[in-house]
């Protein structure tokens, strides 16, 4: 447990919309390099929790600490600069930019100064890095096409690849497998494991796909009705009676 403190700590976060408690006192911690899965039925507050951590919405109470710093309510830009990356539940790519440009733009703002980037080389010195990532995600055939012209699965890969371009210390992935076909799910899992190994960042993953979670996350949190119902290794959580009841509806 001690390894898990001092990196990302979510402390008793609550978010209420009127009488509805979307997130009702959630606390957990993520250690360096750790992969934590967040599961739970629809409407259990997973995305609201994510948005509270990522400054998209302001929690009613509670707070989030990252590397000992209080990051509650910080702007997405401030979080990005602290090395926190994310993906969104829906597809979010730059549709008119080429795949390669999508990847470069995802990392270029972390290099040098604003004025320096005006005078920098067009690829901001990130061309090779982008090309390696393109190889890794098997997007070489389409590297120069506009992202918006590609299939959903390919765009999803770009979307996820972008979040890792700047080698963030923490990445929050909101349903990376949503709408992705089964063969790609396995590829995605392998990619995430590889990225975890090479970059050493911590991941928090919201996902419904149980096989994916089992194969990726050594530690799983199950949320039901805004609260953490169970926490631990995936097998333990999955066999928890309360979890089963929540999923099956009594």
């Amino acid at each position: 447990m001690s390894a898990r403190t001092g990196f990302l700590e979510v402390k008793d976060v609550r978010k209420a919309y009127g009488a509805i408690k979307a997130v009702d006192g959630v606390s957990f911690a993520v250690g360096p390099g750790e992969i934590v899965g967040v599961i739970g039925p629809n409407g259990s507050g997973k995305t609201t929790l994510f948005n509270s951590i990522l400054g998209q919405i302001k929690p009613t109470s509670g707070g989030v600490e990252f590397c000992g710093e209080d990051i509650t309510g910080m702007s997405p830009l401030a979080l990005a600069r602290r090395g926190i990356g994310r993906t969104f539940q829906t597809l979010q790519v730059f549709v008119k930019l080429s795949v390669r440009d999508n990847l470069i733009v995802a990392a270029q703002e972390f290099k040098g100064t604003l004025a320096g980037r005006l005078l920098a080389k067009p690829d901001a010195g990130l061309g090779e890095h982008a090309d390696r990532t393109i190889e890794m995600f098997r997007l070489k055939q389409v590297a120069h096409l506009p992202a918006g012209s590609l299939s959903y699965g390919q765009q999803k890969l770009i979307d996820i690849a972008m979040a890792f371009m700047a080698a963030p210390r923490l990445v929050l992935l909101d349903e990376p497998c949503a709408g992705v076909n089964p063969s790609l799910v396995e590829q995605l899992r392998e990619l995430l494991v590889e990225l975890n190994g090479t970059q050493g960042g911590s991941f928090v993953v919201i996902e419904h796909n149980m096989d994916f979670i089992m194969g990726l996350c050594p530690h799983v949190i199950c949320m039901v009705e805004g609260k953490v119902l169970a926490e631990g290794p995936p097998a333990t959580v999955q066999s928890n009676r309360q979890v089963l009841e929540a999923y099956l509806g009594n």
Partner: peptide, 16 residues
């Protein structure tokens, strides 16, 4: 172009 195509995503990638 990133700002034009998707400002919210751009901000999450460190684009000011």
């Amino acid at each position: 172009a990133a700002l034009r195509d998707n400002p919210i995503r751009a901000e999450s990638l460190g684009v000011n």
